[in-house]
């Protein structure tokens, strides 16, 4: 299985940012500003946390494009504010953040979410809105995976690039917020690392 390179999230942010730690066997880590010194060809996937300097990533777009062109997998968490690749467009929030609009619906199956109940994605301790509150708009040929509410805003999508490589988009909090969860969402991290690693 290939190695997934996680960009470390920022430090000193309190006690609510889980570390991927040892929850998957095929992980490696690098600080964001060391990306320019990192040979990405040794990794199967580059996994970006929501807490990242997107302006800096914009300076690495050639490096990331080459990585994708060579068949790499990019996993993006968070809202796109500074689009660093042509496939990424700025985040569009839900117009109305009502409960019905915050409901998560699966529109296509994907191994990362195999066996994960959409209700467990929608609600955390009975509260909706932790998973996603809008959409990083997908490219035309992307496959939507999860949508939000009646607006059917696509919050998760998969895009197989014509030039090679693939992008898994999650327009919300880091998917590894589910580490240690007591419901079906505990499947997300191991399945994410297995899929991104090319299992």
């Amino acid at each position: 299985m290939g190695i997934c390179l996680f960009i470390n999230p920022i430090k000193g942010a309190g006690d609510d940012l889980p570390d991927i730690g040892s929850h998957a066997p095929n992980t490696a880590f690098v600080d964001q500003y060391d990306l320019d010194k990192t040979d990405l060809s040794q990794f199967a996937a580059l996994i970006l946390p929501a807490h990242i300097d997107q302006r800096f990533l914009g300076t690495r777009s050639d490096q990331i494009t080459t990585f994708l062109d060579q068949g790499g997998t990019l996993v993006f968490n968070g809202h796109v504010a500074w689009p660093m690749l042509p496939e990424l467009k700025p985040f569009v929030p839900l117009e109305r953040q009502s409960l019905e609009n915050l409901m998560i619906y699966r529109v296509n199956h994907h191994p990362v979410f195999d066996g994960v109940d959409c209700n467990d994605l929608t609600f955390k301790r009975g509260v909706a809105g932790f998973y996603a509150r809008g959409s990083n708009p997908p490219p035309v040929d992307a496959i939507p995976l999860h949508v939000l509410g009646k607006e059917q805003l696509v919050c998760d999508w998969l895009y197989e690039r014509p030039k090679g490589g693939r992008i898994l988009m999650h327009s919300g909090n880091d998917l590894w917020m589910y580490i240690g969860s007591q419901n079906s969402t505990s499947r997300v991290v191991p399945q994410l690392c297995a899929w991104a690693g090319g299992e």
Partner: peptide, 10 residues
């Protein structure tokens, strides 16, 4: 200060 994160962008 702008750290380049999406939440600071907003």
């Amino acid at each position: 200060i702008d750290t380049g994160t999406y939440y600071h962008h907003r």
